[in-house]
Amino acid sequence: MPLHLAVRRLIPTRGPESVDETLALIVAGAVASLPLVRRAGISYLERDGTVSSRAPSDAVVAELDALQNTLDQGPCLDAVRGGGPVTASDMSTSGVDRWPQFAPVAAQRGVLVACSLPLFNRHDGVVGALTLYGGHPEVVGEDGLSRAAVFASCASLALHGAHRVARMTTALANRDAIGQAKGILMERYGLSDDEAFARLVASSQHVNLKVHAVARWLIDDARGAGSRP
């Protein structure tokens, strides 16, 4: 698949994609459009600081991602932590010097070449890395790296859009929950809108939970399904 068509596929055509759907599109597009790339996967930086494997193209990538996390070494982790591209032209030689435990296993699985490119978000900085695997050194040659860098930049934009939609969706859901909870308090205790919100805030501070979490508990409680936080 030509690179420009793969990039176009990252643009939603049926409404905003979720983060997981966007990650899957990125991996599929990379394998389909970047020459000599046989496999790909994304190492995703979670909110708690851990790095998880997302949308691996096959079982080999899933295995290598898990191995990197177990050993705490490998190109994906280096790209996420360093914020720059990380390449290996031969896992059986130079790769062993950099990742002595990871590289031999990768080579045994037929993965001789790797290229990890960080994915960026305007608000959060590095949010993960797209890793491309192949068996030919041209994957990390000048032309291969240029194509991969262009694709990774477009992938970062697509992922930023998906994150933005996810945040907006969460914010709207939280606002709706708070609105419903205020309505319950206003009806139950004859409070004004401001008084109901103040009571939610006071409750959230008392139990050390977010206001929207208290609001959802109150909604569940009103429906007979709540358990006190």
Rank of each mutant, 00 (worst) to 15 (best):
V139N: 02
V139E: 12
V140I: 04
G141R: 08
E142A: 11
D143G: 06
D143T: 15
D143A: 12
D143V: 06
G144H: 08
L145A: 06
L145K: 07
S146H: 08
R147I: 10
R147F: 08
R147K: 01
A148M: 04
A149Y: 03
V150E: 13
S153A: 02
S153K: 01
A155I: 02
A155H: 09
S156W: 01
L159C: 14
L159N: 10
H160C: 10
G161L: 00
G161H: 08
G161W: 00
A162N: 06
A162D: 04
A162C: 09
A162I: 00
H163C: 03
H163G: 13
H163P: 01
R164A: 04
R164N: 04
A166V: 00
R167A: 12
R167E: 14
R167S: 12
M168I: 07
M168N: 07
M168E: 08
M168H: 09
T169M: 05
T169D: 14
A171N: 04
L172S: 09
L172A: 15
L172R: 15
A173V: 07
N174Y: 09
D176W: 10
A177R: 14
G179P: 06
G179S: 13
G179M: 02
G179I: 00
Q180G: 12
A181T: 03
K182V: 03
K182P: 06
G183N: 11
G183K: 00
G183F: 01
G183D: 08
I184F: 01
M186F: 13
M186A: 12
E187W: 07
E187L: 13
R188M: 10
R188D: 11
G190R: 12
G190H: 15
